[in-house]
Nucleic acid binder design. Structure first.
Length: 422
RNA sequence: GUGGGCGUAGCUCAAUGGCAGAGCUCUGGUUUGUGGUACCAGUGGUUGCGGGUUCAAAUCCCGUCGCUCACCCCA
């Protein structure tokens, strides 16, 4: 057998030690804020019918065309690792008959997602997202509230320099009419476009606005914008949404070029960014309204709006701003011991400490006292409990204050109360 | 899928064709039961993998795998 050194698959990563601190604080903040706003947590399978995603995110998107992990079961079903969360939530909404609950239904999720693409800074093949979805309400106040809730999550995490871009991409009627206008315009400027944008003109003209090729920027600036071509309903929806955002005093700006990569969006779309120390703009997440998706996936017509954020991206932003306070082991007590009997008594003592909610660090496998003292010093424990051979047989322990250097011997059953007093 | 950069100890990196090394970390020791420093020692490598050139390859050549950055796109 050849000796192999296993390594993680391309584009996937372990979340260990220091990173777990960031990861957990994001999760608990998301849970806390979502819960406050009346969202219920939903966990859906990591595998779903491949067609759910093909229909859900749109067959012409990159996700459908080349980024899905798919597999065939022994029974012959075609399944896919979920590339995003909304399609699964909508599937569950329909399948579980959530339309019969009081509307709107508010749900949030946290978990891993998968896209098979070339990794790069802040982009993975397995990554974590959290998302919030509100199904069954078409009122623009919900659009504004979703934006506000995710903004609250980010500010609760102490992120600074957040900016929000919003736009409206209309509904079926006004978007289709607008697409024709745009295509006509792009064709007239065809000679000035990059090759990608020539292709986009035919396949997905709205994507033209994602192009970063300098050649296309001038054409982009002059191009007709969707927000100037909204129908009356979409226009008033957008205007109302912005007024609510104004009322919340959120740092948003309108970006008429914001489109989004998934096909299911209608009306309001938005993205969140932070500015890093180097002055770079990092996309944290985004979302929008998707009034047609529930019907498209087999339910009855149901308006909905949602948002999804990349947890690794948020971690990156938090690290960039040094947002996590250092190790909090100062309030931990260190338990040092020598010998078999002392180890045995230590095991029992630790249980008493745990019941008293006193955090304790031990080094049970060690015997040399000096090494244990060194370790206690390093983590900065204020108190150290020492049980040596003598103390073990006498049912006592030494409590030493590491700051003053003073120590006293107390009976084992008095240790907890002594420590509590300080 | 396209194009750049890079693969040497757990980590950061030396060694420019001639004995594979240092710092940090880790484990232990410096009179046997008391502190972060200092000193000493130890663990840890088929130099990503496979071929080729050469008396001799971490080093040069070819291939391959992986990492990384950018494009496409997105979180």
């Amino acid at each position: 057998m050849k000796k192999t050194k296993f390594q993680k698959p391309t584009g996937m990563h372990d979340i260990i030690f220091g990173d777990q601190k960031y990861f957990q604080s994001i999760i608990s903040t998301v849970e806390g804020v979502s819960d406050y706003y009346g969202f219920s947590k939903i966990d859906t399978p990591i595998l779903e019918d491949e067609d759910l995603f093909l229909k859900g995110v749109g067959e012409a998107t990159d996700i459908s065309e080349k980024e899905m992990y798919t597999l065939k079961t022994k029974g012959g079903d075609r399944l896919a690792l979920r590339p995003e969360g909304t399609a699964s939530v909508v599937r569950s909404y329909i399948e579980s008959g959530m339309a019969n609950r009081p509307q709107p239904v508010k749900l949030y999720y946290i978990g891993p997602f998968f896209r098979h693409e070339r990794p790069q800074a802040g982009r993975y093949r397995q990554f974590y997202q959290f998302g919030l979805e509100v199904l069954g309400d078409s009122n623009p106040v919900i659009d504004a509230q979703i934006i506000n809730i995710v903004y609250s999550i980010l500010t609760d995490l102490k992120l600074k320099n957040i900016s929000i871009e919003v736009n409206s991409i209309g509904d079926k009627e006004c978007r289709n009419a607008y697409k024709k206008t745009l295509v006509k315009y792009l064709k007239s400027k065809s000679s000035l476009l990059c090759s990608d944008c020539k292709r986009r003109t035919k396949e997905n003209p709205l994507r033209f606005f994602d192009c970063k090729d300098p050649k296309c920027q001038a054409v982009k600036a002059e191009a007709p914008k969707i927000i100037d071509n909204l129908c009356e309903d979409c226009h008033s929806h957008f205007k109302q949404t912005l007024e609510y955002l104004d009322g919340l005093e959120l740092p948003y700006q309108i970006n008429p070029c914001l489109v989004r990569g998934l096909d299911y969006y209608t009306k309001t779309v938005f993205e969140f960014f932070v500015t890093t120390k180097e002055g770079k703009s990092l996309a944290l997440g985004g979302g929008g309204r998707y009034d047609y998706l529930v019907k498209l996936l087999g339910g009855k017509e149901t308006p909905a709006v949602g948002a999804a954020f990349g947890i690794e991206r948020i971690m990156q932003a938090m690290k960039d701003m040094n947002l996590i306070d250092g190790p909090k082991s100062k309030d931990k007590v260190f338990l040092a011991q020598i010998g078999i009997l002392a180890k045995s008594k230590s095991l029992v003592l630790i249980e008493s400490l745990r019941r008293a909610k006193i955090p304790v660090v031990e080094s049970l496998g060690k015997d040399a006292l000096k090494i244990q003292m060194t370790k206690a010093s390093r983590i900065g424990s204020k108190f150290i409990i020492i049980i040596g051979h003598k103390e073990a047989t006498e049912n006592s322990a030494i409590i030493k204050n590491m700051e003053t250097g003073r120590q006293e011997t107390v009976a084992l059953d008095k240790v907890v109360s002594k420590i509590k007093k300080g």
